[in-house]
Design a protein around this nucleic acid. Structure first.
Lengths: 141, 141
DNA sequence: CCTAGTCCCTATAGTGACTAAAGGTTCAAG
DNA sequence: CTTGAACCTTTAGTCACTATAGGGACTAGG
């Protein structure tokens, strides 16, 4: 009925050091320990970590997850807060997709135009060296 | 005809500490200095940094940029290396777009289904808590 | 020549979300 | 009781910067 950290890791697909890291930053409550100071988890611990993992898969950052967990712990609150967090994340994802799509277009053009001879006439290098580019922001990935 | 680091920063839209960082990691050659040890750049320095900035905008990492710069310095080589680097980046971008699109779909479903009453029946929280999710990898943003 | 103010210098530490490694302890099976 | 896997803590490393502290250099005006 209670699991070691390795068992928890196996069941949630979250790595052992990551679990300890989550505890360290206060995302997971410190579980009870054996006499030899080893952590023991129960089913609740699994559910908690699975929640966190799923939220991370959706790209929520740690602070957002902290907020979502505290909502889960207080089920009488309005869920508009959860809605706002999820909507903010959705907006981020959409913006990211838009910016990556623009990147894709530029990369495709760059690669396609390249005659692929010497570097001297390589469009890839030329495009990068072209200092007529003045479009603001750096890519975030 | 020669610029201070601040002037270079203004002309390339790259921040001053970032320029020093690029020098530190060997992406930019150390420029000559004044008697008082202040860096002085010329037009070549601008071109070099503009190249780097554009490459970063396209999401190339530092190692890729290092390779692209060395190609630019040896224009007699075949440009297939440049092509390979750019294609690899394009593949990354496409993979990323695909994974973010899947995320968007899930987030949209989550938000749309939510009746937005109490957290107790909130679909957002419910979806996250649902441990029937077993789909492998974490989102990278 | 002096001063004020802006720019520049180095070195170090912090960001987010982990991951790796070192060096030691505990647990479960046989 | 012994073996070996799993556990423990602490510290440092990842990437590409960004921020801060504590000082020195340069330029324009008086």
């Amino acid at each position: 009925m209670d699991f070691s950290i390795g068992e928890l890791a196996r069941r949630t697909q979250v790595k052992v050091p990551t679990i300890r890291y989550y505890e360290q930053i206060g995302l997971l409550a410190p579980p009870p320990r054996t006499e030899g100071q080893q952590r023991r988890y129960d089913k609740k611990g699994i559910a908690r970590l699975a929640f966190i993992r799923h939220a991370r898969e959706l790209g929520f950052n740690i602070e957002a997850i902290r907020a979502l967990l505290s909502l889960q712990d207080n089920p009488d609150q309005s869920c508009s807060v959860a809605d706002r967090i999820a909507s903010a994340r959705l907006a981020e994802v959409e913006e990211r997709i838009a910016s990556l799509s623009a990147l894709r277009t530029e990369l495709e053009r760059m690669i396609e135009e390249c005659a692929c001879g010497r570097v001297a006439e390589c469009c890839v290098i030329e495009t990068l060296a072209d200092n007529s580019h003045r479009n603001g922001r750096l890519a975030e990935s």
